[in-house]
């Protein structure tokens, strides 16, 4: 447990020390909010949630890339693969909540007519999905430029796809959009339930995928036989 907490803590420390990056990460959701603010508030909320998702995914992608050289030696220092990927994910979830919190406050102050509990749950889904999603791209695509372009593509598809279409449910951040509809348009609770279920399932699938890829990448090779001393 101590190993997991230490990795989580160091991940959060690293991320929160990148002040310039943090500012830019905060800028994107803010811009998304402001750009649609004069029109229908629902568009602002959906854009904001997409901005938070993009920001946390990007942070996860870069954190995973930065740890690529460090993790093998930590593995030799006594860490198991699950300490490393779960610890990093926990750190990213913490950092994601720090990024999301001011925007939740912004919706409370700027759009009092919303169901703010729903906005909070939608943001939780964004953060919950975005951290393992960014990590998965990071472990699959070692070059950050390729990873960033893939993230951009996913977010663009998410933004443009018809949310009522069946294909929309295959996109990772559909949950936050569904919950946002409940929070903004005061629709029935089915939207909330579907959104939460989608968020949980997608998060679980992404965590499992990160676990599988990381375990293979950080596995102990079969040619190495380690014997105890004495």
């Amino acid at each position: 447990m101590n190993r997991l907490v230490t990795v989580a803590e160091m991940t959060a420390r690293e991320l929160l020390r990148r002040r310039g990056v943090l500012l830019l990460l905060l800028l994107m959701p803010l811009t998304f909010w402001l750009i649609r603010r004069d029109a229908y508030v629902g568009q602002s909320v959906r854009s904001l949630l997409l901005g938070v998702s993009w920001a946390v995914s990007t942070a996860a992608l870069f954190a995973t890339g930065a740890a690529r050289e460090l993790e093998p030696r930590l593995r030799l220092a006594g860490y198991r693969p699950h300490h490393l990927y779960l610890g990093r994910m926990a750190g990213l979830w913490m950092a994601g909540l720090v990024i999301a919190a001011p925007f939740l406050l912004l919706t409370v102050l700027d759009a009092p007519e919303l169901r703010h509990g729903g906005v909070a749950v939608a943001m939780l889904c964004c953060v919950g999905v975005a951290a393992p999603f960014g990590m998965l791209i990071g472990v699959l695509l070692p070059r950050e430029l390729e990873g960033t372009l893939l993230l951009l593509t996913v977010v663009a598809v998410q933004m443009l796809i018809d949310p009522a279409g069946s294909g929309a449910k295959l996109t990772p951040f559909w949950s936050s959009r569904e919950i946002a509809t409940w929070a903004v348009d005061h629709t029935d609770d089915g939207y909330l339930a579907r959104g939460v279920l989608h968020g949980i399932v997608v998060t679980a699938l992404l965590v499992a995928a990160v676990a599988a890829v990381s375990s293979v990448r950080l596995r102990r090779r079969r040619h190495l036989r380690q014997l105890p001393t004495g």
Binding site: M10, E14, A66, A67, R68, E69, L70, P72, R73, L76, A77, R220, R221, R222, H223, L224, R225, Q226, L227, P228, T229
Partner: peptide, 27 residues
């Protein structure tokens, strides 16, 4: 160090391993 797979051969290490890469490996 067991960080890269091989095609043939075997490595036996008795005791704990430490590894210092040429570059990187720090945060």
């Amino acid at each position: 160090a067991g960080l890269v797979s091989l095609d043939t051969g075997q490595v036996t290490v008795t005791g704990r391993l430490g590894y210092c890469p040429q570059q990187g490996g720090t945060a």
